[in-house]
Amino acid sequence: MLIDTLISLAHIVVPILIVIASIYAIYFKDLIAAAIAVAALSLLLSLEFYILQAPDVAIAEAGVGACLTTAILIISIRATKREEEA
């Protein structure tokens, strides 16, 4: 009973956190902070896939989205400028 309540709560809380993380990814002017926000978005999206009973997609999203995309974005930011031009 408690487990069902917690899962129903997680179905509400995790998408709200995903939307908040994506808004912060647009809001930040520091590009490394925006990349970290995208990584947090991917990790929360992986958790959401796991709650929705799709562990295949959760593993792929956690590997590609949260680790490799962040590494590629930070390597690209290091080669260019760090601040976004207003």
Partner: peptide
Amino acid sequence: PGGGFQGGAV
């Protein structure tokens, strides 16, 4: 759960 693509990404 998993497969070639998922394990390779890990």
